[in-house]
Lab assay of single mutants.
Amino acid sequence: RPRTRITDDQLKILRAYFDINNSPSEEQIQEMAEKSGLSQKVIKHWFRNTLFKERQ
């Protein structure tokens, strides 16, 4: 599977949600997927990776 490139606009959407809640529900993930055009799997990975980076 090729690597997914996240655009600046998509990143703004993900960051806005992350700043509010770094552990989103399935409904929130689905909402982000619809708004951003990214798959739910990509969003879950982004949140997991970003949370890991923030904790270091």
Rank of each mutant, 00 (worst) to 15 (best):
I43N: 00
M32I: 04
K41R: 09
E31T: 06
G37N: 13
P2W: 00
L51Y: 08
S23I: 01
P2Y: 13
Y17E: 09
R15C: 02
I43K: 00
I20Y: 08
K41I: 08
A33H: 15
L51S: 08
K35V: 02
F18D: 04
P24T: 02
E27D: 06
E31Q: 12
T4K: 03
E27V: 09
S39N: 05
R48D: 09
S25F: 02
L38C: 08
Q40F: 13
Q10D: 07
D19I: 10
I29R: 05
S36I: 09
E26G: 06
R1Y: 06
Y17L: 06
M32R: 00
R5I: 14
A33P: 00
K53H: 13
S23A: 13
R3A: 08
K53W: 07
I6H: 04
E26H: 15
R3S: 14
I20L: 10
N49P: 02
F47V: 10
G37F: 02
K53Y: 10
F52A: 11
Q56N: 09
L51G: 07
K12M: 09
T7C: 03
Q30Y: 14
R55G: 11
D19S: 15
T4H: 12
L51W: 06
H45V: 10
I43P: 00
T4E: 08
R55S: 12
Q56S: 02
S36L: 05
I29P: 00
Q56C: 00
Y17A: 06
R5Q: 15
I43L: 05
E54C: 05
N21G: 04
E54F: 04
D9Q: 09
G37T: 09
P24D: 00
T7M: 13
K41W: 07
Q40A: 07
I20C: 08
R48V: 08
T4G: 04
D19R: 12
A16I: 09
N22A: 01
R55A: 11
H45D: 12
K53N: 11
Y17G: 09
A16E: 15
E34Y: 02
K35E: 05
I13W: 07
L11T: 08
W46F: 04
Q40M: 13
Q28A: 09
R3G: 14
M32Q: 00
I43Q: 00
Q56I: 00
K12H: 03
I29S: 02
Q10K: 02
E27Y: 02
E26W: 03
L14I: 02
N21Y: 06
T50F: 06
I43R: 00
N22M: 14
D19A: 12
R5G: 11
P2G: 13
K44R: 12
P24H: 02
P2I: 09
L38T: 04
P24W: 02
P24F: 01
R55P: 08
T4W: 00
N22W: 02
I43H: 00
E54G: 06
R5P: 15
E27S: 08
T4A: 04
G37R: 11
R15I: 03
K35Q: 06
K44E: 11
R3P: 08
K12W: 02
I43A: 02
R48K: 11
L11H: 06
I20D: 04
L11P: 00
E26T: 15
V42I: 10
Q40K: 14
R15Y: 05
K44S: 09
Q40N: 05
P2Q: 15
I29T: 04
K44L: 05
